[in-house]
Amino acid sequence: MKKIVVFASGSGSNAENIIKHFKETKIAKVVSVFTNNPNAKVIERAKNHQIPVEIFSKNELLERNVLQKIQEINPDLIVLAGFLLKFPENIIELYPNKIINIHPALLPNYGGKGMYGIHIHRAIVNNKEKETGISIHYVNEHYDEGAIIFQANVALTDQDTPETVAEKIHELEQKHFPEIIQRLLSE
């Protein structure tokens, strides 16, 4: 069975959706969740599914501690699902095309440092965009610049607020992220 490691920093709704999806399909399994936030709701979500959780500091991520734990697991895919720190180059180099991220906008627009969550949705509404969406991409050494694997879009109206945009994006993430992970693991 293929092994998935998920990195998340917040609520973990995407992480939990991935965990549930692969429990049903039995193609792969989320074997560990890594988080840099000791107060993240993802910890509780993972533990509810008996998934081990690794909590680490930014320094531990940049040093070898996190890399060593990843190497012990030897995952087939590393999935960033709402992980807010820049991923270290030493890990990226060891796992080429094995680390993916989901971004709540249509890259290359609204990507880069500081562009996450409600900040993106607010910018999209302020710029009166007619559509937005999600991008699933490989992780490289730059924020949100890795090769795009998949995009899905959704129409916006003048009545949309950052909160309604967030809801639309969340629906796309929940539908497509597990499917794309499954496709990548099957290739």
Results as ranks from 00 to 15, higher is better:
V31R: 00
V33L: 14
V33C: 01
V33I: 09
T35S: 14
N39L: 14
K41L: 12
I43W: 00
R45I: 02
K47P: 02
N48W: 06
Q50P: 03
I51R: 04
I51Y: 05
V53T: 10
I55C: 01
I55W: 00
I55D: 02
S57L: 06
K58L: 12
K58Y: 12
E60R: 00
E60S: 00
L61G: 08
L61I: 05
R64W: 03
N65M: 10
V66D: 13
L67H: 12
L67F: 15
L67M: 14
K69H: 08
I70S: 08
Q71F: 09
Q71H: 13
Q71S: 13
Q71T: 12
Q71E: 15
E72F: 09
I73Q: 09
N74Y: 09
N74T: 13
N74H: 13
P75N: 12
D76E: 09
L77N: 01
L77Y: 02
L80Q: 00
A81L: 07
G82T: 08
K86T: 03
F87W: 09
P88R: 02
E89N: 14
N90R: 15
I91E: 07
E93I: 13
L94W: 03
L94F: 04
L94M: 15
Y95P: 00
N97M: 08
N97P: 06
K98Y: 12
K98T: 07
K98D: 10
I99V: 15
I99A: 09
N101Y: 04
I102A: 10
A105M: 05
A105V: 02
L106E: 03
L107K: 12
P108R: 07
P108K: 08
N109P: 03
G111N: 05
K113F: 12
G114H: 11
M115D: 07
Y116T: 11
Y116S: 10
Y116M: 11
G117H: 04
H119L: 12
H119C: 06
I120R: 01
H121G: 12
A123S: 13
I124N: 06
I124P: 07
V125Y: 00
N126C: 05
N127H: 10
K128S: 14
K128G: 08
K130Q: 11
E131A: 07
E131Q: 14
E131K: 15
G133V: 06
I134K: 13
I134A: 13
H137M: 13
H137F: 06
Y138A: 09
V139C: 09
V139L: 11
V139G: 09
E141D: 11
H142Q: 13
H142M: 10
G146K: 01
A147Y: 04
A147W: 02
A147L: 05
I148Y: 03
I149E: 11
F150L: 06
F150T: 02
Q151V: 01
Q151D: 02
N153R: 15
N153S: 14
V154A: 05
A155E: 14
A155V: 06
L156A: 11
L156Q: 05
T157H: 00
T157F: 02
D158T: 14
